[in-house]
Simulated assay, not measured.
Amino acid sequence: MPIDVTTALAAEPSVTRISWTDRDVLLYHLSLGAGAADATDPAELRWAYERGLRVLPTFALVAGQGISSGAAGPASMSMPGVDVDLRRILHGGQRLRVNGPLPTAGTATVASRVSDVWDKGKAAVVVLEQRATADDGAELWTTSMQIWARGEGGFGGDPGPAAEAGLPDRAPDHVLTSPTGPQQALLYRLNGDLNPLHADPRFAAAAGFDRPILHGLASYGIVCRAVVDGVLGGDAAAVRDYEVRFAGTLLPGETVRTSVWEDGDRLHLLAVCPERGDAPVLTHATMEVAR
């Protein structure tokens, strides 16, 4: 079996050094659509111009991985105990915890490990945790990525935590609309994720899709920016914890519509694609904020 649970969980964390500059941050924001609506709007320029630049917390997911770092699209997801073809995996969920505003440039040490492997019957879920630490020892962020490996379940393992309760039984407090461009996936992949699923029509067809799809983490970042701008007054540092499940694909050129329910310092989110009958994109989504 390509997944050896005992080996995966027992492996020592792999440790890497990363660095980034304001150009990496600017590229990331542009790949989420910053400046597309009005390139002269100050609300757009805070993401797309180095003077007064703010950093979306979701930049943590791509920091140090950009195209200039030599990243290349792998043919498999390979780590101790795990060796799975990319065509058989899906990004099932993502969580990010940040301890404060991210700097526009910096260096960090990132420790990566498999923290859990869940048995979902027809699939296994590999939970990959990454912790980033600044040179002074301060923890910058922790990410937890749920990777669904189709056909790898049924080994009698822990099925993982149950789904959280549903959305509040009332109308949302905010509804935010985020269009994407037809080139969005081609631009976003320059952040470092060169999986051909997002560019190569033949590869996408072999994976069961009609055409290349947008990265799940692009949708994740797009929704974060919409909430920061539309609910938090542009204060990216207010975001402390952001967790979602990737419930469906989004095609470049389609729209993300995000409904937001406020519950004190906790926001409940639902992102859908209106062009496809409000097909879900992100579900079981919450954001913890500091006001």
Rank of each mutant, 00 (worst) to 15 (best):
G264C: 14
M79C: 04
H91P: 05
I147P: 08
H284M: 10
A162H: 00
Y49E: 02
G64N: 07
N191D: 01
V272K: 00
L26Q: 02
A285F: 01
S178D: 00
G73Q: 14
P252T: 11
I213M: 01
P2I: 10
V114A: 13
E152V: 03
V244G: 05
W148L: 03
V15R: 01
V260D: 08
A237N: 05
G230I: 10
T177L: 07
C224W: 09
V125Y: 13
L128Y: 12
H215N: 02
A134V: 06
R276T: 06
A171R: 03
H268C: 04
P212F: 11
S31R: 00
S259T: 01
T286A: 05
G277N: 13
A134P: 04
D116K: 15
E50T: 14
E50G: 14
Q94H: 08
G208D: 12
G216W: 06
D136H: 15
S68K: 07
R150K: 13
A37Y: 03
L217Q: 01
V110S: 15
T40L: 06
E129Y: 01
A39D: 14
G216S: 10
R95A: 00
G153Y: 07
A11W: 09
W261V: 05
A238H: 12
L56Y: 06
V281Q: 10
V231T: 02
L86A: 03
G153E: 10
S14A: 13
V244I: 13
P42Q: 14
G160K: 10
G35P: 04
A111V: 14
H91M: 13
L140W: 11
T7D: 14
E12I: 13
G234V: 15
D22F: 02
G33V: 00
I213P: 01
L186D: 11
W261G: 03
D173W: 15
N191T: 03
V117Q: 03
G160S: 07
A75Q: 12
Q184G: 12
D24T: 00
W118S: 06
Y28W: 03
